[in-house]
């Protein structure tokens, strides 16, 4: 249990997936203009990333390794993730229209979110067990959500600030992300 907590806290604060591993930068910079959409995206990613990591772990362990075809990892994983996202979208639409309204727009975007495939591959590379995979992907997903929500909060305030013309939009967002990343470096000595 303690080991799992260490993995989760490490993934959220120390090795934050966006701010120190640079996975999932596109949604981080693209869907962070409004706090409400950032929360929607964060929840959708948390949901898909955790399920996708567990399923890809099972696929690797019971199909790819058993058949000796580990070299098909990339293709197999991206197919699993793409169809999983479709499946989740269908289930949510059928079972809970409210949730679908809130998350629907973000779900298709997640297929090409490199955080999902990245975490799935990293779990295999670090040869985690099933429970460690669960902890690591949940931690990474929560870290993504935390960074996204904090960043969206800052960007909402930045909208009202007087920013030089050439820095408006993407450049100021990147520099803000740099400052957040420096702040997260402070967690390095935590564990």
């Amino acid at each position: 249990m303690q080991e799992m907590m260490i993995i989760i806290i490490g993934a959220i604060l120390i090795n934050n997936i966006v701010l120190s591993q640079f996975l999932g930068c596109c949604p981080f910079l693209g869907v962070s203009k409004k706090l409400s959409s950032a929360i929607g995206m964060g929840v959708a990613v948390t949901f898909v990333l955790t399920i996708a990591s567990l399923i890809t772990w099972l696929v690797q362990k019971f199909i790819l390794v058993n058949l000796g075809i580990e070299y098909l990892q990339t293709i197999a994983f991206i197919l699993v993730i793409a169809s999983l996202v479709q499946f989740v979208e269908m289930v949510i639409r059928k079972k809970s229209p409210d949730l679908y309204k809130a998350l629907g727009v973000y779900l298709p975007l997640i297929t090409t979110n490199c955080a999902v495939l990245g975490v799935a591959i990293i779990n295999i590379q670090k040869s985690y067990t099933f429970m460690q995979t669960l902890a690591n992907s949940l931690g990474n997903a929560l870290g993504f959500t935390l960074a996204l929500i904090l960043f969206a909060g800052i960007r909402e305030r930045l909208e009202e600030a007087d920013i030089p013309k050439s820095l408006q939009g993407m450049p100021i967002a990147l520099i803000t992300a740099a400052l957040m990343s420096i702040a997260f470096l402070g967690f390095t000595g935590l564990l």
């Binding site: 450049p171 520099i175 992300a177 740099a178």
Partner: peptide
């Protein structure tokens, strides 16, 4: 050292984009 740590990536790209915007303006 900060430039090869993660924040350096964000800073560098941000400054380059700002410079290109300035040129465009």
């Amino acid at each position: 050292l900060i430039m090869i740590l993660p924040p350096g990536g964000f800073i560098t790209l941000g400054c380059i984009l700002a410079f290109l915007n300035k040129m465009q303006n």
